[in-house]
Design a protein around this nucleic acid. Structure first.
Lengths: 155, 155
DNA sequence: TATAACCTTGACGTTGGCGTAAGGTCGAAC
DNA sequence: GTTCGACCTTACGCCAACGTCAAGGTTATA
């Protein structure tokens, strides 16, 4: 297994994702990234999927501001989803698939609830800030007027 | 200054805001809460405003997932806003007010940009999750059908 | 075959955001 | 005037999420 075309070394992945190599190894250590394949010498070989996964993790971190432990749960659930998707064809173990599907559904619903809540609150905050900006604009105008006709009390 | 009516001791503030006393002292130490007044013996006396401020800080932490240092910048800016609001009447130092107002405007605009971006991304994520849930529902139905007529390939 | 660029595994260090224990003080009630 | 819970400061502890060496092995290229 000298090298598979399209595979990426850790440095390239780090560059493309904007995280450090340390972070990639750390994610692997914590189970957020499945251990990648290796070259004969031991160099890690990542796939394009891994890149996407890293980007996904970072988005979750950035957007939801949750712990890596929680993120692990999420991406694990998505792994189940992937598994379901790929083995969908073989007509075996329907019962097992159903339980997996149910698990994935539950996790996704939980996420959905959280995200929905946060989205709503973010919207509120956005509105508040917009209001404030308008207020500032008005005040600024009033300051303009005060400078035009000084020593005058407004009606 | 034995005690002002309506003032709260640290324990009550902790209860009402859901944070620990340690956290309140920590916020004070970090400049996120202005040092409250004290009773003669040294007990901290908080106001209702302080309570609101703590709640605000927590919302920022939870929603935006940013550092306390960044939050400090934000609440500082809002302090300026408050100052502007209260001293608005006295017709003095218009130039200074204008610069303060401008500063506050800049900070608010920066916040607004960030919040807007995040809101948008959250919306996207929300939509994705919803899509996924629909997919799961469909799959589940397909599993139902597979169980009804087993060993049959679907058209 | 040498050498630079890249990678490996430790292992210890750092920063943020508090937790927690120690030892003493305050305040209200009895 | 003592008791007892609430509070004070000081200071070390802790965990997450990495950063940062150190000491060496690997790979591509000349």
């Amino acid at each position: 297994m000298a090298e598979k075309r399209g595979d990426l070394q850790i440095g390239e992945v780090a560059q493309r994702t904007g995280v450090t190599q340390r972070t990639l190894r750390f994610y692997e250590e914590k189970g957020l990234l499945r251990p990648p394949s290796r070259m004969d010498g031991g160099f890690r070989l990542y796939s394009e999927e891994d890149v996407k996964r890293v980007e996904h993790i970072r988005r979750l971190q950035d957007l939801l501001g949750i712990s890596l432990a929680d993120i692990k749960e999420m991406v694990d659930a998505e792994e189940v989803l992937r598994a379901l998707r790929s083995q969908y064809r073989p007509e075996s173990a329907i019962a097992e698939k159903r339980t997996q599907l149910q698990k994935a559904t539950e996790v996704t619903e939980a996420q959905f609830t959280i995200v929905k809540q946060k989205t709503e609150q973010m919207r509120e905050m956005e509105a508040q800030l917009e209001e404030r900006l308008k207020l500032f604009t008005r005040w600024n105008q009033e300051l303009d007027e005060l400078e035009k006709k000084p020593a005058t009390t407004r009606g």
